[in-house]
């Protein structure tokens, strides 16, 4: 009983520690960057100076303008133009949009599938568990980039195909993580207590197992989103992902690949920096989140 005052104190301590961790410069910078990136991607059509995929506006005469030069219609191409005369800045904003849509869509759907599979495996155990986990094991023994590459080789190009490939690549990671957490939680006594109350399996999974298994998943989803942005860009760069006619950061860089030897560095440099900054911001943010949600620190 007399541990109460001490416990309360640690509690307050953790809370203020959380505040301190949130106010670290890296967290703030990555958080702000992440916010800006999301805004830019969401409102790309409103923010972008030109629509780089409107063929009536794009003119080949503006091809390969250096950053800061004026285009034919008078707009300044702050980040230059590419070989076809598209404004790189506008293309980046549109590309970011595609990249984020692909990453977020695939992360959400894969997370959902993984949650379903992982919780089922953990709760029912036995054969269902070993069967599901065997599939997960086999899938995860192959690197994501390879599986995605093969799938796209089979499915062909397109945003929808990339999303499908990324879901197939990712669901198993979520499933394994959920199962690992849920199986630890499942053995805890509050689940036994709920079983004693004869609640339905669905209710036990939904109200008891799920809320306690979800925090590692939040961190994982963040880091996976960064990872899938990276994979999507890589695939598009290799020419099997988003087709070159669709704006995506990867296809923009791939587009600039042909010009690097001729000195038009900006076509690859700026989309790359955007890609790097986005992925890094998400990763740093995810790392912080991992520290904050670590059960060892919150107890």
């Amino acid at each position: 009983m007399q541990t109460i005052p001490i416990r309360m104190r640690t509690n307050r301590k953790t809370r203020s520690a959380m505040r301190e961790k949130f106010s670290q410069p890296s967290t703030v910078v990555s958080g702000v960057l992440l916010f800006l990136v999301t805004i830019c991607a969401t409102f790309a059509p409103l923010i972008a100076p030109t629509n780089p995929y409107d063929l009536s506006v794009v003119s080949i005469m503006d091809g390969r303008l250096a950053p800061g030069e004026k285009m034919f219609d008078g707009t300044v191409a702050w980040l230059g133009t590419d070989g076809a005369g598209r404004d790189v800045l506008s293309a980046i904003l549109f590309g970011l949009r595609t990249s984020l849509i692909v990453a977020v869509c695939s992360a959400v759907i894969a997370l959902f599938i993984g949650l379903l599979v992982g919780l089922t495996a953990a709760f029912f155990g036995g054969r269902i568990d070993s069967f599901l986990m065997r599939i997960v094991d086999i899938q995860l023994s192959f690197p994501a980039i390879l599986v995605a590459l093969v799938l796209l080789a089979l499915l062909g190009k397109g945003i929808d195909k990339v999303i499908i490939a990324l879901i197939i690549v990712q669901w198993a990671i979520y499933a394994r993580t959920v199962r690992a957490t849920a199986i630890v939680e499942r053995r805890k006594e509050y689940i036994e207590a709920a079983t004693c109350l004869r609640l339905s399996s669905f209710r036990i999974i939904w109200k008891h197992l799920l809320p306690n298994s979800i925090s590692p998943l939040i961190v994982l989803a963040t880091l996976q989103t960064a990872h899938s942005i990276s994979i999507e860009a890589t695939l598009s760069f290799l020419g099997v992902g988003v087709p070159i006619t669709e704006p995506s950061l990867g296809s923009l860089i791939s587009n600039g690949f042909d010009y690097i030897l001729s000195g038009a560095y900006w076509i690859t440099l700026f989309p790359g920096i955007m890609l790097f900054a986005t992925v890094a911001a998400i990763n740093i943010f995810g790392d912080r989140l991992r520290v904050l949600l670590n059960p060892r620190l919150s107890k």
Binding site: A226, S230, A233, T234, F237, L238, I253, G256, F257, I260, T268, G272, L275, F276, V279, A280, N283
Partner: peptide, 9 residues
Amino acid sequence: SIPTFWLGL
């Protein structure tokens, strides 16, 4: 975080 292919370029 740095994309391998872009770093290569």
